[in-house]
Design a protein around this nucleic acid. Sequence first.
DNA 1: TAGTGGTCTAGACCACTCG
DNA 2: GAGTGGTCTAGACCACTAA
Lengths: 257, 257
Amino acid sequence: MDKKSTLTRIAAESFSDKRERPIWLQIYDRLAQAMQSGVLAEGERLPGEEELAGMFGVTRITLRRALDRHQREGRLQARKGVGVFVRSISVRYVVHPHEAFNDPVAGDALETRTVSLRRRVASAAAREAFALGSRARTIELSQLKSAGQAPVYLSLKEFPVDVFPEFEDRYNETGTILGAYAAHGIDTYTRLETRIFGDFADAREAGLLQISPGAPLIRSRSLNHDLSGRPIEVNRGCWPMFSVELVFGESDLTVHR
Amino acid sequence: MDKKSTLTRIAAESFSDKRERPIWLQIYDRLAQAMQSGVLAEGERLPGEEELAGMFGVTRITLRRALDRHQREGRLQARKGVGVFVRSISVRYVVHPHEAFNDPVAGDALETRTVSLRRRVASAAAREAFALGSRARTIELSQLKSAGQAPVYLSLKEFPVDVFPEFEDRYNETGTILGAYAAHGIDTYTRLETRIFGDFADAREAGLLQISPGAPLIRSRSLNHDLSGRPIEVNRGCWPMFSVELVFGESDLTVHR
DNA sequence: TAGTGGTCTAGACCACTCG
DNA sequence: GAGTGGTCTAGACCACTAA
């Protein structure tokens, strides 16, 4: 039996008492099960909403409530005029903050794509960190990191032009930020502070991360210093909420009463 | 002019081109602005959905899309048969993981309520951590912490009965977990590992945290050892995603190339 | 009992994408 | 041009809560 007829059979089963669980949530459940069992495989396109609604015996609006929820939770992504697709989030990407916020170490398993590299008017955060005037400029680098098919991390970093006068060339040569660091004589750096908080994706972020606008994100903001205490990088990053897990290891957290 | 007529005026303004921003998102925007400016104060009840829809000149379903989004994002909470209320999330509660996962330190500014305290069959996580058999029992403690009016943290901890034979009495006497620790001869402990990840609230969690079911959460799982390396506590906790900010301080994160 | 939020239907128009 | 997802309407019934 092919996949589509399997899905048809799943959809055709009668619903249980809707007072216990609304129909749209029962549809949500069955779609989740179909994805988990492989009836709907990663990357696969779902039948059209009209057809899908017919298969489940409900209105398109009712069906859409189930789809919307799966989109917010990252399992599905809709592309206007094209269709609804199963996103790959089979695994959470595990990040050890002591390492992972630094591009090279945890980045090994990830593919990095440079989204943009340009000079810009310094952001407020960069002005404060680098002690810049209101019209000063910085080097802005945006990267997108993917695990397999699924983008998992989008970053936007700013660097001070006086510390990295040749950043663009050195970055393009070496392909890594640490390469540009080294080319400017910086071999060791310190992460001063990292803040983690939740938020929701805007349209641009949603497009790059292949999630729906409004889907929840985990955001980080951090600041790097070199050995002498000079600030050299401000970083803003975000993960789709459901595709990352932060792990804080043993060590440092002994508590005395 | 009273608040309600102010809201009426806000609602009555004409919408801009809906091709640029859908009407329901424009309603969402105006409600956000009304909350931020104090026209809708914290804890206040909104007009009924039917009335509100009339004020904005849309259908109830269109209005509900705006309300739903605010509920997911934690600014509004609906109570069936009662009304829709403005939740207090004016500030993010800042947590320093080195301290905050430990009840006493960061808990100072929070009010703690004991949700439940009982003995139970050990969870899988507790069985593994404490090396227990499949029918072993543990002490389970659930606490809810609130900042002002708003609940911000819900925890569920398990303790091994052999380490804490009198946990319940000692906890009830001292009112704190550390008190129960001390009464059993444990003054110092170590947090072995903490994992942070995103998820969505189920019905019970939503009720206790005063958010909507399905709203995004930040979850933590952690394990405490005593000085001798003996595991003494497994902890599962969650915050409403939008009401917490995790801060990792300076110190430990120097990176050598 | 009256009012509230939660769910569902039937039908419509639009913008977008692709062949 | 055909098909897709995005938005919106008008109307209905239900379960829940409080007076």
